[in-house]
Computed example of a mutant assay.
Amino acid sequence: MLIGYMRVSKADGSQVTDLQRDGLVEAGVAADQLYEDRASGKRDDRPGLDACIRALREGDTLVVWKLDRLGRNLKHLVEVVQGLNARGVGLKVLTGQGASIDTTTANGRLMFAFFAALAEFERELIVERTMAGLAAARARGRNGGRPFKMTAAKLRLAQAAMGKPETRIAELCAELGVTRQTLYRHVAPKGELRPDGDRLLARKGK
């Protein structure tokens, strides 16, 4: 089954999904299999995307108009698609720079592997710059550290998801962009807050 996802950046009505909708329907996506969000791509909370990913089953293909409609950034995009691949779900991009990506084909998987390699290269550069910056700061008598990956918004989503028996931890971690270790440090298997989770919400003022 083909399932489509659409997104526009503003929820005030100044942007519409008509072009994306028409393209997805023309590509074979049924009108009742379309999900959408009206929010910035940088936001963690995208209920339309969450519902879309939950609806996908093995053998399905997620269809998007452009790559930037799906991922917040390259790292997030790679994590989402790797999570889909692990579930036997394909991804097809209709237009834009990622139009050659169709992970149901050999050529499409090769193209996505290139994007994944770029994401890994980007991560290595960030780590290298961070380590150099920390070394320079220490040399000047300042200490620094890695910022928390878990946010208050992600924590609340994790709490809700962890209490549901159908939740798959690997998929949840991929959606939230955190490691399994980070997740369990903040939330117990049934959704109860752990000390790190309590401290995080306390810092955010709940």
Rank of each mutant, 00 (worst) to 15 (best):
A116V: 11
K75P: 00
E120V: 03
F114Y: 05
V78E: 01
A119Q: 05
R69P: 01
L74C: 04
L77R: 02
E120D: 15
T61L: 07
G108E: 07
R69W: 04
H76M: 09
G96N: 08
T105C: 11
T103P: 13
A106C: 05
G108C: 11
E122M: 07
A106K: 14
L62T: 05
L91Y: 00
R109V: 13
V80T: 15
K66S: 01
E122F: 07
T95Y: 02
K66V: 04
F114V: 15
T104K: 02
R72G: 01
V81D: 00
A106Y: 02
E124R: 14
R69L: 04
Q82L: 09
R129H: 12
F112Q: 04
L77I: 08
T105N: 09
N73K: 11
A113H: 12
T95Q: 13
R109P: 10
D68A: 14
A113F: 12
V78A: 04
A106F: 01
L125C: 09
Q82E: 15
R87P: 04
L125A: 10
N73Q: 11
R123A: 13
K92C: 10
L125D: 04
Q97A: 12
V78P: 03
L62K: 06
Q97R: 13
R109W: 00
H76G: 13
F114H: 14
E122T: 01
V93K: 07
A117T: 14
F114M: 15
V93L: 09
V81L: 03
E120I: 00
N107M: 15
L62S: 08
I101R: 05
A119H: 06
R72I: 10
E128I: 03
D68G: 03
L94R: 01
A117W: 01
A117R: 12
E124K: 13
G83D: 13
V78F: 00
A117E: 14
V80Y: 06
N73A: 12
G98C: 07
T104F: 01
W65V: 01
R123D: 07
R123S: 14
L110W: 09
E124H: 11
R69S: 04
L62D: 02
V81K: 01
I101S: 04
G108N: 11
N107W: 02
E124P: 03
V63C: 08
T103F: 11
R87A: 10
F114E: 10
V127M: 04
L77W: 03
A86C: 04
Q82G: 12
L125N: 12
L91P: 12
A106H: 07
L94H: 01
R87K: 14
I126R: 11
A86L: 10
F115P: 01
E124C: 06
R109A: 10
F112P: 08
E128M: 05
L91K: 02
A116T: 12
Q97H: 11
D102I: 12
V81E: 00
E120A: 13
G88F: 07
T103Y: 08
A99I: 02
T61I: 14
E120C: 06
L110D: 04
V64F: 00
